[in-house]
Design a protein around this nucleic acid. Sequence first.
DNA 1: CGCACGATTGACGGAGCTCAAGCCGCGTGG
DNA 2: CCACGCGGCTTGAGCTCCGTCAATCGTGCG
Lengths: 268, 268
Amino acid sequence: MSLEALASSPANPVTVAMSRRQIHHLHEVSDNTAALHCTSCLLRAICLPSGLSMQDAELLNTLISARRTIRRGHGLYHAGDPFENIYAVRAGSFKTQLFNPEGREQITGFQISGELLGLDGITGGRHDCDAIALEDSQVCVIPFKHLEQLSFDMPTIQHMVHRLLGAEISRERKLLMVLGNMCAEERVASFILDFSARLTARGYSSSEFNLRVTREEIGNYLGMKMETVSRIFSRFQDAGYIAMRQRLIRIVDLDGLRAVLEPARLSA
Amino acid sequence: MSLEALASSPANPVTVAMSRRQIHHLHEVSDNTAALHCTSCLLRAICLPSGLSMQDAELLNTLISARRTIRRGHGLYHAGDPFENIYAVRAGSFKTQLFNPEGREQITGFQISGELLGLDGITGGRHDCDAIALEDSQVCVIPFKHLEQLSFDMPTIQHMVHRLLGAEISRERKLLMVLGNMCAEERVASFILDFSARLTARGYSSSEFNLRVTREEIGNYLGMKMETVSRIFSRFQDAGYIAMRQRLIRIVDLDGLRAVLEPARLSA
DNA sequence: CGCACGATTGACGGAGCTCAAGCCGCGTGG
DNA sequence: CCACGCGGCTTGAGCTCCGTCAATCGTGCG
């Protein structure tokens, strides 16, 4: 079936299949009531306890004081809130946004299951950004004081904390590279590829997923305007790299998408 | 005296005075041989030991295994080097640069006295960027393993490490805001203001300083081309915000520079 | 003194922004 | 169940800011 047909027909069987198949949604994890402990959590391999022994993971579990459910559009925390906990996304997804003194907004990241929230605020004792749920979501609450205490006796836990903070630094650096060096097409391509890679690591489909965010939010994150994001999605669709319907996206030609980032294109 | 004269005349008394006065240079600190310990170092208030008691600072000093001198243009460490130490800039200045898989370069920061280097690499056990000296410089070497060990017994030290990592995250977020939200003029204005603020915190002149970096490097850092950086410096000079001669810059109208960042300008 | 590298400045073109119109899909209420 | 409205998305036309290319200048160094 041609991509043109896919793009133009709302009743197209493929797109209908896409919208019906539930991808990366709340129930996959939270319905599993057996997974209330880190040791048995489905996210264990990629979440906080990754790299820890079974015993250490058990210990970590004792820290998790609660789980919290956040409704779509609501905040997990806001800039200025006292820093007390870090959070592991158990189900759903979030965005973190920053406001500068002049009131400009910058989205600094989108977090999905198994990723952490709240590491900002370690320095100042207060969070310095807002974390907003993009859909009904659930997080594990980890009181940071307890984590610090635990890390006195446990070098592995201390290493873990350092690793987490370092990972956040690396993540932001990658974004700096995108914003500082890439043109609009490249930014969008790397955005899609990054999302795909993270979903792969979590065992979700890497070729078909729901972005959950508006064009506006993607644009803000990538430092460009909504209209440009939209145009480039359309261009990628015409080029046969992706197929999309609303916020549902399917990667059709991974190599094509990767080629957008190749510097060789510049000389061509 | 008019700014036009200042800009056009190389022999102008003001600019000559600027180039003769030594600002932010190596000898201010390293000549002070009494300051070989954290407790007596001139940078104490703003460096690693900031916020620590005299005793803790003394303890910290025992960690500093060596000082290293790096010649201008040489690397303190490179991407891929095993991560062993973090470094405190004792004198001079550095840039940190990142290369992505496609070979693109992104400068992620400029570090001056009292600032830290090497925090990247905590995660992977390897540095993930290069640190290059912008002038002959000297650093204090702090073996990270020792620091971690020390932090088992010393909550204050552990807090310090977390604070440092958190500060790095915040720093990069500010840059994300600049790259994601601001036009060229605003980027340059915020670059100058950021530099000025950091020098103020270190007791240097906040209105007159040596940038030490090429237009190319400023452009790379700010996500724009050298020519645009140059044009905007010229424009700021014409507008009476700054006076500059080569890499030496003097802030003439701080409020004017700040006003460039005001969103009110957009509606005007 | 002359070379080389960096900085400046101009002319031009294009990528991406602005403004605007129209469309789609979903929720709501009659 | 359908009409309606609204928020988000798409697409077009025109413009602007910034990148590109190129010439020139200035400065520091050998």
